[in-house]
């Protein structure tokens, strides 16, 4: 995969062979600029690959699809729509009836605990709340694969800890597969059922190991958690 800039083509991703399975929670971690976001955009179908192919259930990915939803570090909500209407954006596009849209948005707003803010506008919410709306908006399309590009990166440390647990709970309830790009080793190990580490550009996957995604918060204090963190960190710094 090469990425065109005005001055030169940057080779971003080296032959990456990767299979993602249903229900997996994959944490992807690696140095900045190593092409993690590019990988997500490719899988989302927002960017065509310059070489090779990406298959979704055996079919080549040709464009965006509601089953592969991408959410970003910044929530990028639609500021002219209320929280509820933001969440209904996807359901409306898939042609659900008004009643079904409302049921869908109510369900996912309750899942991210924002039922009371349905009629608020994005600019009236805190950063953490906005990110939860973005999550509900992505989930409302009931994707089979959720692509998260550092969704917790812009949050303060306390909110972030809390959101990690919410994310885990949501993943367990919905059963969708998740690819989470993160810069936090702690987050990668705690949330992922599988941890991938990318090398410097052109990126290759240099580490592929099961994570603690199925465990509860107490796992963070266990020796094996800390050992795994150290191991991941050694690969990231390599």
């Amino acid at each position: 995969m090469t990425y065109k800039t005005s001055s030169r083509d940057v080779k971003v991703l080296e032959a990456t062979n990767l299979d993602i399975f249903p229900g997996e929670f994959v944490s992807l971690i690696g140095p900045s600029g190593c092409g993690k976001s590019t990988l997500l955009r490719l899988v989302a179908g927002l960017l065509p690959p310059s070489a090779g192919q990406i298959l979704w259930k055996g079919q080549e990915i040709l464009g965006p699809d509601r089953h592969r939803c991408l959410s970003f570090q910044q929530p990028h909500l639609f500021p002219w729509l209320s929280v509820q209407k933001n969440v209904e954006f996807g359901p409306k596009n898939r042609g659900l009836s008004r009643k079904e849209q409302r049921e869908c948005s109510n369900y996912y707003l309750s899942l991210v605990k924002l039922t009371d803010f349905a009629d608020s506008y994005p600019h009236e919410l805190s950063g953490g709340m906005q990110q939860r709306v973005a999550l509900a908006r992505a989930l409302a399309n009931e994707p089979q694969l959720l692509l998260l590009d550092e969704p917790l990166g812009a949050l303060d440390a306390l909110t972030r800890e809390h959101m990690q647990d919410e994310l885990k709970a949501i993943w367990q309830r919905t059963g969708c597969a998740i690819i989470l790009v993160t810069h936090s080793v702690d987050e990668a190990v705690y949330l992922g059922t599988r941890i991938l580490v990318n090398s410097h550009r052109p990126a290759r996957i240099i580490f592929d190991h099961p994570g603690m995604g199925h465990e509860g918060r107490e796992a963070k204090n266990r020796a094996e958690f800390l050992a795994l963190k150290d191991q991941v960190l050694s690969y990231v710094w390599d």
């Binding site: 927002l46 965006p64 939803c69 996807g90 399309n141």
Partner: peptide, 8 residues
Amino acid sequence: DAARTLGS
């Protein structure tokens, strides 16, 4: 991008 990934 967000709109496209949400089915616009």
